[in-house]
């Protein structure tokens, strides 16, 4: 077993490599962690690194291009890690993400990469979707936790229609929203009737974890 101090060191080394977009160095740090303690590598090394990166972005210490590169690299590396890393998480309630209205996918890509790297099975329902089309996909797919990313205000306001339409879904659906309009107007998520809003992909990790536990 490795002790907590070693794990922290490896997690910090991984974080540095990710911020430099240095894939080989990131792979080496993760490999070392996996060799020493396979089952905990995702939870104790990879996820904390990504969470620190998200938080530092929110605090203005990092740029989004670094967050994006880190997420992408981790997503690839986590795929390679899977055998032996133990915990593939399960949400009995289906988990999905979509971009409402527009074709600017970066928010969705960052959040998806982070959740997938952390082992969450996440369905991608697409982009450029209308509230109606998205509500239909959610109901058909038995989705219980829906992540919605938006960039434009008009798209963010359509979450209200989406939430209304989801009232008719076979089972209750929790809606987590995010994206620039929600970050700049901090009350907007309440106004549109979402269940929560996340300012970073790290927030998505925390909320999904909590909700999955509650929903069983």
């Amino acid at each position: 077993m490795i002790d907590d101090g070693d794990r922290e060191d490896l997690s910090v080394r991984l974080e540095r490599a990710l911020l430099d977009a240095d894939r080989p160095a990131a792979a080496a740090a993760l490999e070392q962690a996996r060799a020493r303690d396979g089952a905990l590598v995702v939870d104790r090394v990879l996820v904390p690194a990504l969470e620190r990166i998200g938080t530092d972005w929110e605090r203005g210490l990092l740029a989004l291009s670094q967050v994006y590169m880190a997420g992408r690299i981790c997503e690839d590396l986590a795929d390679a890690l899977t055998p032996g890393t133990g915990r593939r998480r399960a949400v009995r309630a289906g988990l999905a993400i979509a971009t409402l209205e527009d074709h600017h996918l970066l928010g969705k890509r960052i959040v998806s990469a982070t959740l997938r790297a952390a082992g969450w099975p996440l369905q991608d329902l697409g982009q450029g979707m209308t509230a109606r089309a998205l509500a239909a996909r959610v109901s058909e797919g038995g989705i219980r936790v829906l992540l919605v990313s938006t960039l434009m205000l008009r798209a963010a306001l359509q979450v209200k229609d989406l939430v209304g339409l989801l009232q008719a879904a076979p089972a209750p659906v929790r809606v987590l929203v995010g994206g620039a309009p929600f970050r700049i107007d901090r009350d907007l998520w309440r106004e549109v009737g979402a269940d929560a809003m996340g300012a970073t992909a790290g927030d998505a990790l925390d909320l999904v974890e909590a909700w999955a536990e509650e929903l069983g």
Partner: peptide
């Protein structure tokens, strides 16, 4: 470039 290649691709070009 955000609207020419997309922001994700632009970040990849900038970093790599």
């Amino acid at each position: 470039p955000a609207i020419q290649v997309g922001l994700d691709r632009w970040f990849e070009l900038l970093h790599q």
